[in-house]
Write a protein that binds this DNA or RNA. Structure first.
Lengths: 220, 220
DNA sequence: ACGAACGCCGGGAAAATTTCACGACGTTGC
DNA sequence: GCAACGTCGTGAAATTTTCCCGGCGTTCGT
């Protein structure tokens, strides 16, 4: 393989799924998978040490999620090329990911060609969005639809995600390395921005917008 | 390849993910992937036409889900061997799947060896459960698996229902003709009885137990 | 280059809520 | 009849939420 091969870092918490990416990508000449990570923190570490040309990242992962990982990597390296590859066929997530600095968003239901095409596009400096998400975005645009993703800043959105996923304010503060006070302030601000008065309404809103899927309810 | 190869049908709505299964499985001698489906209905059709020795199936898919597909296949063929391979690390789902007739339940976070091992076990007629799910099941068994419905008194249950449906403590107090303070007391007691620390967890618990359905969320 | 605007972080203090301890009342059941 | 329990409520303490504030860094328009 040539020294001009584009190097790739895969990030997904399912090893068999990474095997799938790898299998598809390595059939393409000019691409080389050089590292794999199973969560956001590991992704950040490997990005620093490997400096890959492209990161392909899932969104839902334990600990710091994909959005936060994108934010951190881009904060360190403004030119980083990150392609989101996820099961979430949700325009709100796509908006957040792109805002955080991702250069592409492709759903896992897409055929392998779409993924390969997107990888090439992002490597060439273009933004890549899979057709189904294009459609979602078009629909939400047409509907006027002010979603959570539109009114919240990336940080707020990340905190919202963790509020829905984790347990206590303290735990969230720790994963984000900020003070519990900050999380509490953000929590309050989020409810204000979304126009809900209670946490219960907040969860209902998140459910309606597909931010929390019924199957994503975690352990018993 | 020998005619004694075990034939496999893969069912998952993510093509790149199927590529992962295939890559892992075909490294094993004696296994042969003979068909792929991307939803439950297609899985059923292909099961009938291909009569594979084993089906590896995801749970969350468009249209009829994995559980329903298992049920249909088993209804047609009581000896069908179906292994669930899913992201849902949830004991409840595992119980449902096994009850429906699946012979194994492995999470996608498991290493490839675990999947291969489970495939072999199921082909040999054994039930295969991945270690993390074993653990979940053990925990829920130990916890005595208390559902909201049986630890709460009728009044508490009613208040819970209203908490999920209405907006404020005051509104609930009015519909019940009691003081807001009483509602707050009950609210607190309910969280205590159900062992949750926050309203967010409370909603998640309610969702898991089917107390709040997605359709009940009002308008978009 | 500069100021304005905004996102992000968190302290302090007031306001509101949650939690706890306690008692009253009625019903059920042994 | 009396013990156990569900229901309702008060008051006070503990905790959380909310609001207001300033500091810091980045982006953006002029």
């Amino acid at each position: 393989m040539s020294t001009a091969d584009a190097t790739i870092l895969l990030v997904d918490d399912h090893s068999v799924v990474r095997e799938g990416y790898r299998s598809v990508l390595e059939k393409q000449p000019g691409l080389r998978v050089v590292a794999e990570a199973s969560d956001g923190a590991e992704a950040y570490r490997l990005y620093k040490s490997e400096a890959p040309d492209l990161v392909i990242m899932d969104l839902s992962m334990p600990g710091i999620g994909g959005i936060e990982a994108v934010r951190r990597i881009r904060q360190r390296d403004k030119g980083a090329k990150i392609l989101i590859f996820t099961m979430h066929q949700n325009a709100g997530f796509a908006v957040q990911a792109i805002r955080a600095g991702a250069r592409g968003y492709v759903t896992k239901t897409s055929p392998p060609e779409t993924l390969v095409r997107a990888v090439m596009d992002v490597l060439a400096g273009r933004i890549a969005i899979s057709p189904d998400i294009d459609h979602e975005l078009a629909l939400s645009r047409l509907a006027g639809e002010s979603s959570a993703a539109d009114v919240l800043t990336p940080r707020e959105f990340e905190v919202l995600r963790l509020l829905l996923a984790e347990r206590t304010t303290e735990e969230i503060a720790e994963t984000l390395h900020v003070s519990p006070k900050t999380v509490a302030n953000l929590h309050s601000l989020i409810k204000d921005k979304l126009g809900v008065g209670s946490d219960i309404e907040l969860v209902r809103l998140a459910l309606r917008q597909g931010l929390l899927t019924q199957v994503d309810l975690g352990e018993a």
